[in-house]
Every structure is written in structure tokens, then in C-alpha cells.
Computed example of a mutant assay.
Amino acid sequence: MTEQKPTRNKALPGLLVAGSLAGVGAVMAGLLSLAPPPVDDGSGPNPVSMDEPSKIQMENAGAFVLPPSVGPGGSAGLTPARPEAPPPLAAVPAVAPIPAAKTKVAKAKGKPTRIKIPKIKVNAPVGQVTVDIKGNLGAPSLAKQNLTGWYRFSPLPGENGPTVINGHVSTRKGPAVFARLSELVKGDQIYVYRGDRKIARYTVSGIEQVSKSTFPTARVYGNTSGSQLRLITCGGVFNRNAHSYKDNIIVYATLSKKKV
């Protein structure tokens, strides 16, 4: 799974290495630091061009303008928002972020350890992922279908900024941890547990399906004024030759409750 490289702090400032699954680069100053390209499911090499349109392309056939904001999911369907659209507004009143860890020891203890999403029966450990020398964000091990990965330079769960967690939609063994991620809708709840026993409860504010060639880097990794969560997996058409999906499913959520 690949994505765009996030930031080492809650504000995610700096340069952006944006791009598709293949790592197409573009520089954006003032928004992000080197951001990994779109997430891939990690089950094989990058996708190759093919004639069959993706689900997202078919849903938007004949559309002249993309929606101005990320949709709520559900019966509304999953479509991409305009590239410049901001993250969706909170579904419920947001709460103040958990104060940032100030020492290396505190940061180490505050790393996420588990994620639970009751609606889709996710109860999974959280490991760590980082970027390779090309700036591509790594994915959890394919040997463990129920493992998610926290981008280690994104904020700790509950702290200010967008915390990023990815996971496979499938592996060669079958459905994986985020196989049902596309079923989430605005208002659903997500719980992220930290090693220091703090708990961040997020409420989904929107969900979209986007082509990996037009991954919304700024919307996913850009600065936020509060604590937010991004869940990313694959979706759309599966290219059997390349063993990879053409799209990404992205869930946006805002901190709505915390236990400290």
C-alpha cells in the first residue's frame, strides 16, 4: 500500500512529494512535508494501464464537475471530491486534542496499539509503517491479514493534526482488516488505543473513493486545526496482472471523545 508522505508533527508543514501509486512527484510548499504516494494494498507491484474503467470512473461517467466536498458515504455512494476541496466538516462537535507528548519517552508510550471499528467488526493491532527511499509509504505485513499500520511521522492518536493509519483490503489469503472500510458512513465511530492507555474516539465525517493517479494529498495530510484521523485502503477495479487495485478508499474522521 502506498500513500503520500505525511508530516513529523501535528501541522505537517514543508514540502510535498505527491503522486500516484507509481510515485509521481510534485512540490507543494507550506502544506506538507514529503508525503507518500497513494496507498496500495501491498499484494503486488504497481498497477498497469488497462482498458476496463474503474468503478469510480463509471460512477462519474458524464459528470462535468466533481463534488465540492467529500461525501458522507452510504446510499450517496463513494465518489472523489474536487482536488482542492478541504477535509469534510465534523459530523458531531469536536473536542480539544490530547496535549502533545513532550519527551521521547512519552511519545514512545503514546504510540497507537489497537484500532476498533464496531460497525465493521474491526479489532486489530496497530503496527508502524514508514516511507522508503522513493517516498512511498509502506504497508503492514501481508503475512498478517488483521494488521494495520500507523504512519510513524503522523501525529499520535488524539493529538493535533491528521493521524494516518492504513491497512490491506485483501491479501492472497482472502479479505483483510479493511475489507469493509467502504461501508463506513458519516457518524460512525472509530476507537484508537494508545500504549499509555489514552483512548481517542473519532467520528467519521466523510468517505471517498479516488483514483490513485489523483490522490488528494493536501486533503489527507494537510494541516488541521484539531485532531483528525485518516484511514486508507484500496478499492475499485482489481488488476489481476499487476495484483493491485486502481483506487483508494479514504475515511476522514474527527476526534469526538477522549480518555486521558
Score class of each variant (00 low, 15 high):
1 M>Y: 09
1 M>I: 13
2 T>G: 15
3 E>T: 12
5 K>R: 08
5 K>G: 14
7 T>D: 13
8 R>W: 09
9 N>S: 14
11 A>G: 00
14 G>M: 01
15 L>H: 00
16 L>Y: 02
16 L>F: 02
17 V>Y: 10
18 A>K: 08
19 G>C: 02
19 G>P: 02
21 L>Y: 05
23 G>A: 07
23 G>D: 03
25 G>M: 08
34 L>K: 08
34 L>F: 11
45 P>H: 01
48 V>S: 08
49 S>N: 12
50 M>T: 09
51 D>S: 14
53 P>S: 08
53 P>C: 06
56 I>G: 05
58 M>W: 07
60 N>C: 14
61 A>M: 13
61 A>R: 09
64 F>E: 13
66 L>I: 00
66 L>N: 07
68 P>L: 06
71 G>I: 05
73 G>L: 09
73 G>E: 04
76 A>Q: 14
81 A>I: 08
90 A>N: 01
93 P>S: 09
94 A>M: 15
95 V>E: 03
100 A>G: 03
102 K>P: 00
102 K>E: 13
104 K>S: 13
104 K>D: 15
104 K>I: 08
105 V>P: 00
107 K>H: 11
109 K>A: 15
110 G>F: 02
112 P>D: 08
112 P>S: 07
118 P>Q: 04
119 K>N: 07
121 K>G: 02
126 V>G: 01
128 Q>H: 01
133 I>R: 14
137 L>Y: 05
138 G>S: 13
141 S>N: 11
149 G>A: 15
159 E>V: 03
162 P>N: 12
162 P>I: 03
163 T>V: 14
165 I>G: 07
165 I>P: 01
167 G>Q: 03
170 S>Q: 14
170 S>M: 11
173 K>I: 00
176 A>Q: 01
181 L>Q: 00
186 K>H: 11
186 K>P: 01
192 V>W: 12
192 V>H: 07
192 V>N: 10
195 G>P: 09
196 D>S: 09
196 D>C: 09
197 R>V: 07
200 A>F: 10
202 Y>R: 04
207 I>V: 15
208 E>Y: 06
212 K>P: 01
218 A>N: 02
218 A>I: 04
219 R>W: 11
220 V>H: 00
223 N>G: 02
225 S>W: 02
226 G>W: 04
228 Q>W: 10
229 L>M: 13
229 L>R: 09
231 L>R: 12
233 T>Y: 10
235 G>F: 04
236 G>C: 10
239 N>Q: 12
241 N>M: 11
242 A>H: 06
242 A>T: 06
244 S>H: 13
248 N>F: 06
249 I>N: 13
249 I>E: 09
254 T>F: 07
257 K>S: 15
258 K>C: 06
